[in-house]
């Protein structure tokens, strides 16, 4: 079941309708498929190609550029440990080595039980809280090896399921534009007129 489900097709069509050209929806739809399956499958990319009106190769071409899309199964929890300057200055290399020892895998690897993947990540925009990491893109700040051990224990015991969804789920709130409020997307080729409010008068 790696094509998009009917529910997700409905969400996908709502997203596509917001863009003047459907191809713009590619990245959001790839995220949606990853949310459904945990990673981006070939069947999902084919399905997205149909929905957007491009070839499957074009979908792969775009998807393969972006780091967050995984093309084979990864752990339920992907732990990204930042290694850029501010975190490195505050000891992130030791943190990554500790994680590798603790889980018995190298950065980029996944544990045999399919629970954890660890990655050496680049700057995650929490530099004053170094060293930082993200679990499925949820932050943990000023981490020590002891705190990392506790985090791994909690994740394995399912204690953080509410805060940290399985890999693939990004934002749990979706934008919804009500039909009666929407201006709507028009193709850029349509001859455009100067907007009504640019008439030199106040709008209110």
């Amino acid at each position: 079941m790696s094509r998009l489900t009917d529910t997700n097709v409905a969400i996908a069509n709502e997203i596509i309708a917001r863009y003047p050209r459907p191809k713009s929806a590619l990245i959001p739809l790839l995220h949606l498929s990853q949310e459904q399956n945990g990673y981006v499958t070939d069947a999902a990319m084919k399905h997205i190609a149909e929905l957007v009106g491009v070839t499957p190769a074009e979908v792969l071409g775009t998807a393969s550029f972006y780091e967050m899309f995984k093309f084979e199964p990864v752990g339920k929890y992907v732990i990204n440990i930042c290694g850029t300057m501010s975190c490195a200055l505050m000891g992130s290399e030791e943190l990554l080595h500790h994680a590798e020892h603790r889980l018995g895998i190298k950065a980029g690897g996944t544990t045999a039980d399919g629970l954890f993947t660890i990655e050496h990540a680049e700057c995650q925009a929490a530099c004053t809280e170094a060293p930082c990491l993200q679990v499925n893109y949820r932050y943990r700040f000023r981490m020590t090896p002891q705190q990392l051990d506790a985090l791994i224990d909690d994740l394995a015991a399912g204690k953080l399921a509410e805060e940290i969804p399985p890999h693939g789920t990004l934002a749990r709130v979706r934008q919804h534009i009500p039909a009666d409020r929407s201006v709507g997307a028009v193709p850029p080729e349509a001859p455009g007129q100067e907007p009504a409010w640019m008439n030199g008068k106040a709008a209110l």
């Binding site: 972006y66 534009i177 409020r181 201006v183 709008a203 209110l204």
Partner: peptide, 26 residues
């Protein structure tokens, strides 16, 4: 959107614009 600050005829004026949330992938 629900409160009329974004979308069609904002605050009852002739100013209309949609804001579409888009997100990247690393």
């Amino acid at each position: 959107y629900a409160a009329g600050y974004v979308g069609r005829n904002i605050l009852g004026s002739n100013f209309s614009v949609d804001i579409v949330l888009h997100w990247g992938a690393g």
